[in-house]
């Protein structure tokens, strides 16, 4: 997959990692000198439950190709039950995204403990690869005609015609 300028597509992924487990896991992965994909833009949150649905929506709106949420394993949440609600939220959000035409696979939730540095590295690689294969977020193609009463999506070809190659 390549963009208009011909360079291979590199996904931009927004990752929300809970401070106590997944973020610590990421730290450990770094400490272990594990090699993993550099596509994550990580946002540290105190708990996976801090990731309000709006964060997910906003990330996609701003052009994220994927959104990753990492939390503690069930039973390990440092706020006891925060991640219980995360699981429900993500399940609902995935279905709504899919209904509006945004593949649900672009949203990914996983539990990673502070001791699981290797799991963190594997998850980052796997998700990055998945999103890379899916290509850029389809929302990037959505443009609305400013003055028209009926808007439409610009297809890749039209978007390419609009922006000179390499721009």
């Amino acid at each position: 997959m390549a963009d208009e300028s011909g360079s291979p597509f590199e996904p931009k992924i927004v990752a929300f990692c809970c401070n106590w487990c997944t973020y610590a896991g990421a730290d450990l992965a770094g400490g272990m000198r594990l090699k993993y994909e550099p596509n994550f833009v990580t946002v540290r949150v105190m708990c996976s439950a801090r990731v309000s649905p709006h964060f997910i929506i906003r990330a996609f709106q701003e052009g994220a190709d994927g959104v990753f949420i990492g939390g503690c394993h069930i039973g390990d949440c440092h706020y006891v039950k925060g991640n219980y609600i995360t699981a429900k939220r993500v399940a609902i959000m995935k279905r709504l995204l899919e209904f509006l035409g945004i593949p649900k696979e672009r949203l990914h939730l996983v539990w990673i403990a502070a001791s699981e540095g290797d799991k963190y590295a594997r998850e980052v690689d796997a998700f990055t690869e998945k999103v890379r294969a899916m290509g850029p977020s389809p929302l990037k193609q959505v443009r609305f005609w400013k003055d028209a009463t009926v808007s439409k999506k610009i297809y890749k070809s039209e978007a390419a015609a609009e922006t000179p190659a390499g721009a």
């Binding site: 899919e98 209904f99 509006l100 035409g101 945004i102 593949p103 389809p138 959505v142 609305f144 009463t149 009926v150 808007s151 439409k152 999506k153």
Partner: peptide, 20 residues
């Protein structure tokens, strides 16, 4: 009807509808 569409088709449909 919308569930039965392909993901991409759904995006088109909603873009057109919600764009109004």
């Amino acid at each position: 009807r919308i569930d039965a569409m392909e993901t991409e088709e759904r995006l088109d449909w909603w873009t057109e509808q919600l764009g109004k």
